[in-house]
């Protein structure tokens, strides 16, 4: 009599209900998902990862070093070249490039979808109110929960990994775009209006340029969050450095896992500093 009466619990029904919806969505929209899968694979992932694995290892190192030098500084250029050498020495170059391809694909999708959503949220208060809890949910809900439907829709592979990564990494993109645009000085908006700008002109010539530093900070955060999903992504069949970490865990090979982990950390540092550098240059 201290327990909650079992007959009152209806969790089972809800589960069944959600399952039903997911099943229905998967079956009904199968052609659409198929096309989407092809689009993500052929449009982004395959060309990216083909390209990144095709460039000779030394050229990759050179490019990364050069980018680090231009947007950060010479010291960091040396550091990033060192990181890349270590990745090569541990034999993780190709897997790292695959991880990079997934990360970049996810980031690009986040930017393409996140910036317009952020702009819309900045212009419409009701949409912003609606969006807020959804974004909170996307970030706090354990990723495995939406991995399951993603798997059901796309099967094992890279596309569900990208989908899961996008869901996890897009909130900062939307939030910071929204914030950046809302923070634009109302006086500048007034000045712009007084010269007869259309809403589109105000957006393009005033709001977006002024929000740019904040938007770039959002891109930086999105990249970092996308990268933090690599291990999870490899669990559903997206090959990359995460695969090594996973193998290390499965086989209790601490060394293997450790090297994979180090590669992820190095990639994270490089991407973080370079994208931050670009953001700083834009201020």
């Amino acid at each position: 009599m201290f327990d909650f009466p079992e007959s009152w619990i209806f969790a089972w029904d809800i589960m069944k209900f959600i399952d039903g919806i997911v099943d229905w969505v998967v079956i009904t929209f199968e052609p659409f998902f198929h096309a989407f899968n092809i689009f993500i694979l052929r449009g982004f992932l395959v060309p990216f990862s083909d390209f990144l694995t095709w460039i000779p290892w030394w050229a990759t190192i050179l490019l990364i070093g050069l980018a680090s030098w231009r947007v950060v500084n010479r010291r960091f250029a040396l550091l990033s070249v060192g990181f890349m050498l270590i990745i090569n020495l541990t034999g993780l170059h190709e897997l790292s490039m695959m991880t990079l391809a997934i990360t970049l694909t996810s980031t690009i999708l986040c930017v393409i979808m996140g910036i317009p959503l952020g702009i819309f949220a900045a212009r419409s208060n009701w949409f912003n109110t609606l969006l807020k809890p959804i974004l909170d949910g996307m970030q706090t809900m354990p990723s495995f929960v939406y991995l399951i439907p993603a798997l059901m829709i796309f099967g094992l592979g890279k596309t569900p990994a990208v989908m899961a990564t996008v869901i996890y990494a897009i909130p900062p993109m939307i939030r910071l775009t929204n914030l950046g645009i809302r923070q634009v000085d109302p006086q500048l908006m007034e000045a712009s209006l007084s010269f007869g700008t259309t809403p589109w002109q105000t957006l393009r010539k005033v709001q977006i340029p002024l929000a740019m530093p904040t938007i770039l900070a959002g891109i930086n955060q999105t990249i970092m969050m996308a990268l933090s999903m690599v291990v999870l992504a490899s669990m559903i069949g997206a090959k990359g450095v995460g695969t090594e970490v996973l193998a290390g865990i499965n086989r209790l090979e601490v060394g293997r896992g450790f090297l994979g982990g180090i590669a992820i950390v190095f990639l994270a540092i490089i991407l973080d500093r370079i994208s931050q550098g670009i953001a700083k240059k834009n201020q």
């Binding site: 006086q187 000045a191 712009s192 007084s194 010269f195 007869g196």
Partner: peptide
């Protein structure tokens, strides 16, 4: 029509300047 008016007939100078910093 209002936009046309602002574009051609009236211009404003503000106390706070209202210049675009970028």
């Amino acid at each position: 029509a209002l936009r046309e008016l602002r574009r051609h007939k009236l211009s404003v100078v503000f106390q706070y300047f209202g210049l675009l910093p970028h």
